[in-house]
Write a protein that binds this DNA or RNA. Structure first.
Lengths: 123, 123
DNA sequence: CTCTCGTATAACCATTTAGTTGTAGGTTAG
DNA sequence: CTAACCTACAACTAAATGGTTATACGAGAG
């Protein structure tokens, strides 16, 4: 559905677009209720142009779409693409999980090496 | 487990770390089989230092861990964190999906701004 | 001990990003 | 028509990114 093959470049764009709290917030907002660019802009402590750029980044990553309505541009989220992004990560996770099992198997046959170190760094 | 609250900064780091094909490949590789940094470096057409930096970015995003073994540093993926990242996107997608439904509901009850743009369900 | 290997880090460079202000164009309101 | 509004875009700046080469340092090998 809509997402078939995602190129590396597309994937880069999607992840990069999501790597900004303002943009994630924009996506959340417009998925909640479609809003014009200026409505969005008024919600953030930055210039209109900055918000407009963020919207452009999201649009380029295909995470939102714009629709011209009168003199304003209405922004709404693209659920299909969002789902696609989620699936993309799920797919990664699954591949990695499968490989982890193989590792485990290899370890249990040729082992002397302990695996369970606790990782929980945080700042 | 392991992933409870992910701050905005953490989320930024995770998405940004994944927004690079080389880094995604590194994560895939080390989840497949743990490898030293120099082993990894030999797999890419770039300098050792560049690869080492990519590894550092992934480590900072908590997507991989390093373990010193003799004079080499063994890199392996952190399945829990990867799963956490996947869940993060799933969570977004779910929120957005729920909100889409609300929109739909609102539209069907309080509408008068209906000008026939095709908003809504068909994903 | 000395040499080499694996890693880390520093200094540098080019490109991109995230923000700014300013300007221009199109659309609606009066 | 004119004024106000919404959007887009250009030009600029500061900071971050992704790469380079060179250097330093710890740990094993001989």
């Amino acid at each position: 559905m809509v997402i078939r093959e995602l190129s590396d470049v597309d994937t880069d764009r999607i992840f990069r677009a999501l790597a900004d709290a303002t943009r994630r917030d924009i996506v959340a907002r417009v998925t909640s209720r479609e809003q014009s660019v200026s409505e969005l802009a008024s919600a953030y402590a930055m210039s209109f142009a900055a918000v407009q750029k963020h919207v452009a980044v999201l649009e380029r990553a295909m995470l939102i779409t714009k629709e011209r309505r009168g003199r304003q541009q209405i922004v709404h989220g693209d659920p299909a693409m969002l789902r696609g992004a989620a699936q993309l990560l799920e797919a990664y996770e699954e591949i990695w999980r499968a490989r982890s099992q193989r590792i485990e198997q290899i370890l249990t046959e040729g082992n002397e090496k302990e695996e369970g170190h606790d990782r929980s760094e945080r700042r």
